[in-house]
Amino acid sequence: MVSLTVNGQRHEVDAEPDTPLLYVLRDHLALNAAKFGCGLGQCGACTVMVDGVAVFSCVMPLLMLEDREVMTVEGLGTVENPGPMQRAFMEEQAAQCGYCIAGMMMRAQALLQGNPHASDADIRAALEPNLCRCGTHMRILRAVRRAATMMQSAGAETTGAVR
C-alpha cells in the first residue's frame, strides 16, 4: 500500500511499487483526464503535477509518490465551477480533439504557479514537452495568457489589492 494525496484527497493505493502513476490515476482512482499517449514521457498527454512540478505520469512510479501531493486537471475545478485555467481553455476554444489538453493545462498551471507573469517565451518553453497534433497552439497560448490574467485578478481580489 502506498499513501498519496491526489487533488487534496488522501488515498491508500494497493498496487505494485513500479506501477506508473498514470495507471493508478485512471485504473484505481477513476481520474481519466490524464491520457496515455506514448508511455515514454515524450508526448505530455499524461502530464500532472507532483508537489507543484509538472511530470509525465506515465513514467512516474508509484513508489516515488509516498506522501507527496499529486494534482490532476480534475483538481483545478469542477464542471459547475471550473478553475481559471479550465475556463481560459474553454473560452479560447483551445481544444480541437482535446487529447493533449489536460496535459497542456497541467504544465501551464505549474508554470503560472511558479511564474504568474510568464512571458510568451516562458509559456512556449514550458509547453514545449507537450505535443498537440491538431495544431491549436495559438489558441493554447492565448488560453494560458488568459489564465494568467484570471489568476492574477483572483489573487488581487483575494488579497484585497487594487487592480
Rank of each mutant, 00 (worst) to 15 (best):
6 V>E: 11
6 V>C: 11
7 N>W: 05
8 G>M: 00
9 Q>I: 07
13 V>K: 14
16 E>F: 14
18 D>W: 12
19 T>Q: 12
21 L>K: 15
23 Y>A: 03
23 Y>G: 01
24 V>F: 11
27 D>Y: 06
27 D>F: 03
32 N>K: 05
33 A>L: 10
34 A>E: 01
36 F>Q: 13
36 F>H: 14
37 G>C: 02
40 L>M: 03
41 G>T: 03
43 C>G: 04
46 C>G: 05
47 T>V: 14
47 T>Q: 09
47 T>L: 07
52 G>S: 06
53 V>S: 12
54 A>L: 09
58 C>Q: 08
60 M>C: 11
61 P>D: 09
63 L>V: 15
72 T>N: 14
76 L>P: 09
76 L>I: 12
81 N>M: 08
83 G>Q: 11
83 G>F: 14
84 P>M: 05
86 Q>P: 08
87 R>P: 02
88 A>R: 01
89 F>A: 03
92 E>F: 11
93 Q>M: 02
93 Q>Y: 04
97 C>H: 03
98 G>E: 15
98 G>L: 11
99 Y>N: 04
99 Y>K: 02
102 A>C: 07
102 A>I: 08
102 A>E: 06
103 G>D: 10
103 G>N: 13
104 M>H: 06
104 M>C: 03
105 M>D: 11
107 R>E: 07
110 A>L: 12
111 L>Q: 07
111 L>V: 09
114 G>M: 12
115 N>L: 08
117 H>A: 10
121 A>G: 00
121 A>D: 05
122 D>N: 02
124 R>E: 05
126 A>M: 15
127 L>R: 14
127 L>Q: 12
129 P>I: 04
129 P>N: 06
130 N>Q: 13
130 N>H: 13
134 C>G: 00
135 G>Q: 05
140 I>Q: 03
141 L>G: 00
141 L>R: 08
142 R>S: 12
143 A>Q: 01
145 R>M: 03
146 R>A: 12
147 A>T: 13
149 T>N: 08
150 M>K: 05
150 M>T: 04
151 M>K: 09
152 Q>W: 00
153 S>T: 10
154 A>F: 05
154 A>D: 10
155 G>F: 02
156 A>P: 03
156 A>F: 01
159 T>N: 08
161 A>E: 11
162 V>M: 10
162 V>L: 13
163 R>P: 10
163 R>M: 08
163 R>V: 06
